[in-house]
Design a binder for these strands. Structure first.
Lengths: 156, 156
DNA sequence: GACATATAGATGCATCTGCATCAAGATTGA
DNA sequence: TCAATCTTGATGCAGATGCATCTATATGTC
């Protein structure tokens, strides 16, 4: 396979081309469209925002033991102080508990409550229906595979 | 081409599958990663946030005449009150002017100032370099075409 | 052990956002 | 023409977020 000069030059240029800008613009718009559909569906059904679901789900994943905030932080797209305050709110609503951490007196262990599990379970049908509308109704299985793969390249 | 029963069933199921959920998660993460890289680059260079650039660019597109807020609103991903206050800030910084609208006394025409044009021009190198790092360094031209096309299906 | 440094998590303050609503002017329709 | 309704844009208030910093504990080094 030959690589022509203009291809090399094209790939070396500093200015992002039209295609790049279109990807960028659509990435913002597609994310915005999908997320706002989902958030709206949750709100309309009287549920808390997506971030609450994410926290609860993440807490359910991590066994009975609970998880440390700094661990949660890596899975959720939140800064430290954002998570701290999100946990405040979810705790105040009774869906999780913060317990002192045996190993590390600075830290804490966050544990989901029974009510938290129930809430997460109740949210899922609404959430999944919204995902269907926002994503899977719009793309074939193969397209989803491809899109997931390409988006993966933009992460990290 | 034959369509097997299990394919039909798969495509009809209500629950989003693994693939859908992966696309969804990656869409959020990829957007977050790309946008925060860009915002950080702007901030580090002492520039205002991306939304300011978007407004200024949009104002430059629309000729000398300026644009009405409700027109801008359609191009920028902001709610009406968000735009109203963003315009307050940009105006206060001297990069745009709000003028009364001749045709419609309720409305106004937003016009970019000379300083606004200058600012937009000065931001571009930083913005485009960040875009290169966040997007075009990570995907070939063909991949960008495909990604743009697929993201387009999630919009509207 | 004692000190310097690093890490976990919270918080005061300023800013930004979302929601509901408002005021003022435009449009419609009897 | 005049009331009802719609559209444009602003804003008060509550809540969320970003930033810087703080406290407390842990860890590493001598």
């Amino acid at each position: 396979m030959q690589m022509h000069l203009y291809v090399i030059v094209r790939s070396m240029k500093k200015e992002p081309g039209e295609t790049t800008i279109r990807v960028w613009a659509r990435l913002l718009r597609a994310q915005h469209a999908a997320q706002s559909q989902v958030e709206k569906a949750l709100k309309d059904a009287g549920f808390p925002p997506l971030s609450w679901y994410d926290v609860l789900l993440e807490l359910e994943r991590g066994d009975q033991a609970g998880q440390r905030p700094f661990e949660l932080e890596r899975h959720l797209l939140l800064p430290q102080y954002g998570l701290s305050r999100l946990l405040d709110r979810i705790e105040a609503a009774g869906y999780l508990e913060r317990r002192p951490c045996a190993d590390d007196a600075r830290g804490q262990v966050v544990v989901i409550t029974r009510a938290g599990r129930q809430l997460r379970r109740k949210i899922w049908p609404t959430y999944s229906a919204a995902l269907k509308t926002a994503v899977s109704d719009r793309l074939s299985g193969k397209e989803q595979e491809t899109l997931g793969m390409l988006l993966g390249k933009l992460i990290n």
